[in-house]
Design a protein around this nucleic acid. Sequence first.
DNA 1: TTTAAATACCTTGCAACACAAAGTACTGAA
DNA 2: TTCAGTACTTTGTGTTGCAAGGTATTTAAA
Lengths: 115, 115
Amino acid sequence: MDNTGIIENNKTQMRRGVLEYSILLILASGDEYASSIIQKLKDVNIIVAEGTTYPLLIRLKKLGLLNYRWEESTQGPPRKYYMITELGRQQLAGLDAAWEELSSAIESIRKVTYR
Amino acid sequence: MDNTGIIENNKTQMRRGVLEYSILLILASGDEYASSIIQKLKDVNIIVAEGTTYPLLIRLKKLGLLNYRWEESTQGPPRKYYMITELGRQQLAGLDAAWEELSSAIESIRKVTYR
DNA sequence: TTTAAATACCTTGCAACACAAAGTACTGAA
DNA sequence: TTCAGTACTTTGTGTTGCAAGGTATTTAAA
């Protein structure tokens, strides 16, 4: 049995839960295109694949949390810059609360365990 | 479009990521049976369904992270007490690190956003 | 003795979604 | 005109949370 696999798999699971939240957070401080979002996440050790990010952005657009505009690049093909909508900001506030609730829940379980 | 649904769905996503971790944490401080684990999670506002918990415990058992023993109850049917194995404790240490990495990642993105 | 309520555990089918892999398209330099 | 770099997209697969429905045990009331 591959033990590192158990951990790796679980890191994926954890990442999963906060991906939408992270992306909304990033877009709340400025418009970005997909590759740049992926890079910003990588900078804080949240590794996410293209095949995850693109469909997710499309989904958030469909839900009305994001919009996008095309913008020329000086290097390479045009970029799809995503921006957060008013609805997106409202939802982000809810996710903020959800994150705080969750992390304080985990902290309280950890306290009991590592007394 | 049902907006509360977006949040609810995402809380589910977040929960998802930390479920195995929470359960290992709980079992690291003492043996418990499934209903009791569900209740302890509910106490810290992590709501998880039976249909999630039972298959998960079985999976963790198969992976060798948990074991169980049957124990009579003074009220109702016998209970399946789960206990964490040595391998489980090793994996838990890895999940601890993963959790700290993830939560500090989120905090650093939040700092940029809410300057 | 039968019925009901409480407790506990388990299974099935569905839907969501992360990701690897493969593909399309644009640009500029060799 | 070929290649490398950048960017966006789609398909298929595997995992897994959960609602719903089910089985089994115990105790107590009717």
